[in-house]
Nucleic acid binder design. Structure first.
Lengths: 215, 215
DNA sequence: TAGATTGTTAATCGATTAACAATC
DNA sequence: TAGATTGTTAATCGATTAACAATC
């Protein structure tokens, strides 16, 4: 029995592939801004430092987006990659912990261009509660659960000290959100229906230190 | 002819391994704080969500740090992993671009505990130059080269908008530093004697978006 | 048509997992 | 000694690279 053309094949879609998609998206947006209509895997690769074969393989695992002998239509490919990444819709996000990092993230312009709406900020410090960061009012963490539900927040960003991270994660999960972006340098336990991405900044710096040390 | 015990073997030391070392280091420091003397790969793995086999393999690629039937001495292993990562010395670092992100990084407490000394901040905005962030004075980017040399800065952190990142990188390289930690969402070209680590925050968030979108 | 470039299969490379001998 | 746990080799799994037919 033949597989229908639309059937998902057993292609890669590996973690590595998914981590490269945002890079493709970023570069396609740039190309779009430059007024480029068509781009080849060769040119995409040159701009990103990735081999053209890799790019074609990555894209082909999600569908046939290109035209043989021609290349990829920038607008079309950007829309397709955006659809795959879920960036062509709007996600409501919240930041918990409005310290220096929380403030920096609240002001992060890329969120907006990627379709993320910052709809709530939380902190427990009375001096911070009630202030505004990037036009969003800081709420008391005590009210986290009701506000997350009310404002239909799907993604929570943890920017509190490591010692409080698990507790905050528990509250976020309890409030029913879908994903957590964790900046606290600690392993957080969540039910496996919740997607978690860890962003431990000390890894990047340590890796740099390693490579400089070893010549 | 027998290989001397000290000879480097052809073991992995893969990128993946090196990226896990900082996690081991972090967990060992925590264990040390808890007063734990000896830890098994089993327990380390439990705390990190990594298999014990993986941990033993990673560590064994750098030497024999454990005791069969016993485990690893926490202090000793932490020192060894720190040595490998180059964290048991002091690196002088500078941040270029004192916007929200630059300020957050300047206040990042983990730098200190990892042995990084923040010795310079740079910006081009006259309103920012001369102010102090976490006790460090902000200098004019114009003087970057001479200050980087003078203060023996080995690592530079780029926290400027994407459009200026390459230009800043060129100046840093010209000043003779060894490594760059790049937060600008753009590919930077440097000579291959310079190690560069890219920290594109939109990747983490896009990856989260992808996984939530696909059920 | 000739040249260009994709999509896909096969070959290679690298990383993880399993198994177990060595040994504390 | 018996039990525990490392370090290492072999087996498996996954990801990248190479090659090329399909086709614009």
């Amino acid at each position: 029995m033949k597989q229908p053309a639309s059937a998902k094949n057993s292609n890669s879609k590996s973690k590595a592939t998914i981590d490269r998609l945002p890079l493709y998206f970023r570069t396609l947006r740039l190309a779009q801004d430059e007024g480029i209509d068509i781009i080849s895997s060769e040119e995409l690769g040159r701009r990103l430092g990735i081999t053209p074969e890799q790019i074609r393989k990555d894209l082909a695992s999600f569908g046939q987006f290109g035209k043989k002998g021609v290349g990829y239509y920038v607008n079309e490919l950007k829309r397709n990659v955006g659809d795959i990444l879920g960036l062509n819709r709007h996600w409501n996000i919240a930041i918990v912990g409005i310290g220096h990092l929380g403030v920096a993230l609240a002001n992060f312009q890329n969120f907006v261009t990627l379709g993320f709406n910052l709809v709530a900020l939380f902190d427990q410090d009375p001096n911070v509660i009630g202030t505004r960061v990037n036009h969003v009012k800081v709420e008391d963490t005590k009210n986290l659960k009701s506000i997350v539900k009310e404002r239909r927040i799907q993604i929570g960003i943890i920017a509190v000290p490591a010692a409080f991270a698990q507790e905050v994660a528990d509250q976020l999960v309890d409030a029913g959100l879908r994903g957590i972006w964790n900046f606290a340098p600690v392993k957080i336990e969540v039910p496996d229906t919740i997607k978690i991405v860890n962003e431990d900044l000390s890894i990047g710096l340590s890796s740099l230190s390693y490579h400089i040390t070893h010549e």
